[in-house]
């Protein structure tokens, strides 16, 4: 078991005052059998009311609006979590995790890749692990080469991308191989920005994390914010506003072991 302390902050500076700024965030870790929240806190600038909701995948949503004119918008999530993979339990799997989603549609090139790299024996976890290693070799981590709307098939053809792309490629391949898989985003120990990886549902009916960007199975240094079919189901922050002009966004993340 590991105890992790986390701080995550996004700040947006506006050129002109923004008003009627509506937001839906997924910046607090989702509770699960392996992830117990000891403390969690959200603070907003400007200060304002927000409500806590839960989406269909069990992710926590923080919903609110800042109607008054503001030139800075910032949210900071912080808290402590106990991560214990020994507490993993059998769970049900949503049927949509077996199927392609908008960003994870197969392509003929990926079918060929799958034929080449899918081991014919082993548990779903072993098979997915082998696919993860193949994806890691196929994709060169290249920030700026893709965007949030890039599909798995496009990133696969480019053979470049970031954690989101590598996760979506692995998800697509797993589902093609009949292994239920879902997208996970969250934090890992260290400093920087949010990360994305994959969870697969193995034959013991338990979820296992695989990180194709780092070529390793997920351990207790990972904190999951949200899960879904692909990136679109788990954006950390979405919002609309009036005015504002040009925006400059900065992100701070720090997770440490206690």
């Amino acid at each position: 078991m590991l105890q992790l302390e986390f701080t995550y902050r996004t700040s947006i500076e506006f050129e002109y005052p923004a008003t009627d700024h509506y937001f839906t965030l997924r910046c607090l870790p989702r509770p699960s059998t392996t992830q117990h929240m000891l403390a969690s806190h959200l603070s907003l600038i400007p200060e304002g009311a927000w409500s806590l909701q839960r989406d269909g995948y069990g992710n926590l949503l923080q919903v609110g609006v800042c109607r008054a004119p503001h030139t800075t918008f910032s949210f900071q999530a912080s808290g402590r979590a106990a991560v214990n993979l020994a507490r993993r339990r059998p769970e049900t799997c949503h049927p949509s995790f077996y199927c392609p989603s908008p960003l994870t549609r197969p392509s003929p090139a990926m079918e060929e890749f799958l034929r080449e790299h899918l081991p014919s024996t082993g548990s779903p976890l072993d098979q997915a692990d082998a696919l993860m290693r193949a994806v890691y070799r196929h994709v060169t981590y290249t920030p700026g080469s893709t965007s949030v709307t890039t599909t798995a098939a496009q990133a696969f053809d480019l053979a470049r991308g970031v954690c989101q792309d590598e996760a979506q490629i692995l998800i697509t391949l797993c589902r093609m191989a009949g292994i239920p898989a879902r997208y996970a985003c969250g934090f890992t120990v260290g400093e920087g920005a949010t990360h994305a990886w994959v969870q697969i549902w193995s034959d013991d009916r338990m979820w296992y994390g695989l990180d194709p960007t780092r070529n390793q199975q997920v351990d207790e240094t990972y904190l999951t914010l949200a899960v879904g079919r692909d990136y679109q189901d788990c954006p950390v922050d979405r919002g609309v506003l009036c005015g504002g002009g040009k925006q400059v966004q900065s992100v701070y993340m720090r997770v440490s072991e206690l």
Binding site: R54, D55, G56, Y57, H94, P95, S96, C99, P100, S101, G228, R229, Q232, D233
Partner: peptide, 12 residues
Amino acid sequence: YSSSGYLSPCEG
């Protein structure tokens, strides 16, 4: 789930 009318935000 491949139907374009299926909307995951309506889950649950």
